[in-house]
């Protein structure tokens, strides 16, 4: 997993609530058995005018000029500004994989759906929740000023606006630690393998029916 410490990036607004995982990456792309290569299909149904199929050459497809990520001013955006309940719907990790593969490193929004929120951290993508008023102000700023960039400092837990004002955000210490160090959860958990084995042995004794077969 790539480390996340500080990131400065161009911001693109996704001004909708309840952006679901089907919109982030439609199901026909879930058939892949790999973790990469989803970027060209990110927001596929909004981004292109035709219907996307896995393995297609996206360079030749007709773009939807109205979709925000297709507008020249947002080309190369690595921070998405999002509304309420972003990432709702399925548990597909293909959603963060597609965002990362596209080049997104952080999401700044009002709220995120639980499973999606979790999946982001497992992949080095940072979702940041900010109060409604801050998000509203950011949406207004992004719309008003082409080339709008934010600086995210995970160590300091701030999102700095171009005017220098830093908005603090919260993150669980464990998640922060893993992101900064680029640590793999599994390796960390396996340090407790003895404790897990002990727990399991006790459970097997007390409730053997949970171990049928």
């Amino acid at each position: 997993m790539e480390k996340f410490t500080r990131h400065v990036g161009l911001v693109a607004p996704i001004a909708r609530n309840n952006v679901d995982t089907d919109a982030i990456i439609p199901k026909q792309f879930l058939k892949s058995i790999r973790r990469t290569g989803f970027g060209p299909y990110l927001f596929d149904e909004w981004r292109y005018l035709d219907r996307g199929e896995p393995g297609q050459d996206c360079a030749a497809r007709p773009l939807n000029p109205e979709f925000v990520l297709n507008q020249p001013r947002y080309r190369g955006a690595s921070i998405l500004l999002t509304g309420k309940n972003f990432g709702c719907g399925s548990s597909r990790e293909h959603a963060p994989w597609a965002l990362l593969d596209y080049g997104v490193r952080a999401l700044v929004g009002k709220s995120f759906a639980d499973i999606f929120f979790n999946n982001c951290f497992k992949n080095g993508l940072l979702p940041i929740r900010l109060p409604q008023a801050e998000i509203d102000a950011l949406f207004a700023d992004v719309a008003a000023r082409p080339g709008y960039r934010l600086m995210i400092d995970l160590e300091a837990q701030t999102v700095a606006r171009p005017d220098g004002r830093a908005i603090p955000f919260e993150i669980e210490p464990y998640r922060k630690h893993c992101l900064i160090e680029g640590l793999d959860d599994i390796g960390l958990t396996l340090r407790h393998r003895d404790q897990i084995a002990e727990f399991e042995a006790r459970r097997r004794l007390e409730q053997p029916w949970n171990f049928s077969r």
Binding site: R35, G89, S90, S91, R92, E93, P96, I115, N118, N119, K122, N123, D185, I186, T189, L190, R193, I196, E200
Partner: peptide, 30 residues
């Protein structure tokens, strides 16, 4: 799969997880 919540009907704690978590459960049972 997010609809794992279905199994909660049996008085168990059931929930959907992402693929990294699937890997985590495979490797650690936790």
């Amino acid at each position: 799969d997010s609809h794992t919540s279905t199994h909660g009907a049996f008085g168990c704690l059931a929930f959907g997880i992402g693929t990294s978590e699937v890997e985590h459960v495979l490797a650690t049972q936790c």
